[in-house]
Structures are given as C-alpha cells and as structure tokens.
Design a protein around this nucleic acid. Sequence first.
DNA 1: AGAAAGCCTCGGCCGC
DNA 2: TGCGGCCGAGGCTTTC
Length: 261
Amino acid sequence: MPEILEVESYRELAHRTVGAQIMRGWADSYVAKKLVNSQSWPRAVKGLTITGTCRRGKLMLIETDGPELGMRFGMTGVLLIDGTAGIDGLFYGPHTFRPGWVRGGLEFTDGRKLLMHDPRRLARFELQPDLSEMGPDALGLTRREFDGIVRITRGDGPAIKARLLDQSVVAGVGNLLGDEMLFRAGIDPRTPTGRLTTLQQSALFRAFGLTMRTLKKRGGSHLGDHMVARFPGGLCPRDGGEMRINTIGGRTTYWCSRHQN
DNA sequence: AGAAAGCCTCGGCCGC
DNA sequence: TGCGGCCGAGGCTTTC
C-alpha cells in the first residue's frame, strides 16, 4: 500500500543519513517545481549536515543544521539510498529502476547517495516547507483531532470522502485509505460531512484507527479489505452487494451499494 | 485507449 | 445583493 505508510518507510530509510554531510545536491526542473528554480536546491543543501527526520502526512522532512528539507513522492516517487528502496517497489506504476527516472537527490561526503526515483514526475523537493496549512497527521490521530475533521461550520460541508482527502484537514489520507475506512465504517462516501450522525462519526473514528493500525501491522504491503472488489462489476467481499463507482472529491471512489449508506 | 494511489490552480457559486 | 471563501473540476505527467 502506498500513501502515508510508504512515506513513513522512506523516512526510516532516510534516517540512516543522520550525521552525514551533504557534498552536493541536484534536482531537475520538475522535482524543483516548488522552488525558485532548479539551482535553488544544490545551492541550499551544499554542506548541510543531516540532524534528523520527520514526517507530516505524505510530506517527508529531513532536518539539518540549516534549512529543513521536504520531499513529496507524488504518485510514483520512490526514495533510494545506495540502491535500497524504502519499500519493495510500488503497487502502482513500474516496478523497475531506470537511471533516467532519477529526478534529483543528495550526495554525501561519505560517498552515499539519496535518490528520488519518479517515472511520472509528480514528486517534489521543498525548502523550509510550510506546515501551517496541513492538518494533524493521520497515523495516530486522536479522537479530539478527528472531531475537527467532522465539524462543519458552514452548510452541510463537502462529501465525507472529499473531506478525508483534504490534506489541510487531516494529513496523510489518500484515495485508497479513504475508501477503505468508509467501507469499514459502512458510510456512503457521498454523505455531506455535516450530515453524519453521532453514530456514524464514532464508527468512522474507529474505522480510521483500525485502518491505520492494520496498515502498520501488515507492513504497508497488504491491500485493504475492500480492494478485492475494486474493479468495475466487483462484489462487496463483506455482503456480496454490488460495488458502485463514481468520482468523488476528484478521485475514483468505490463503495458497496448495500452496507455503505 | 483510458485511467491512475498526488497535488495545485482556478472559477463558479454557496451562504452569511 | 455583495462578497469572501469554500468546493469541485480540471490539469499536470508518464506509464501500463
């Protein structure tokens, strides 16, 4: 499973570089898109010493004795350190390594290299990333934090699926995880957030935590429970109901016509 | 050929 | 009725 746990595994991998000093860094114009230009990266990172790692949602953070470095992996980004991947390949996208798909990286004085391998060019490097617009981290979300997700102050609010995907509300829920927790909670993804009953809110909080814990236990490599039915014409693995497909919150969404309402 | 698991921007219109 | 801000649609990019 990609998404937040995959980024967490990249962070663990990146943590091996704590104490190392950056000799040089490079970035192509795509991975540097959030920077002033592609020269900003090599200029800013040269000579920095890595002091720690961190993560918020799907944003990986590398702390240094200078500016904090941020890395986003988009849909197909993989972090490599000397040929070691943080997780065994990707479920989506090519599983192969090609030197031409390395979009940027860091080279340390001890000879090691940290590489961003990304066929589809949606990964990004950042300098001093601004976390103020990001919601609380989805791994280990507290009930109090969860209540902030379902609290709507104006109108009915967006569909709960769209709300869960909003990184400024909660950081780290991707399309598949959103579908998975709504499947477990038995909630129609189109339900306006402000219309969720107290019972549904509690069910969703439990499903949220369960989904995250299960993900961790499975080491991020196992697909979610609803995934076996994630194709047109699929049947719900829980009750055999027909699975519906629609675009919600801009993403392809699957849900059971029988038990999610 | 069409769809894809992330993120960003933009324009319409909701709701105060 | 005016207007700020929310929300959904669409685009990016390349691959299988």
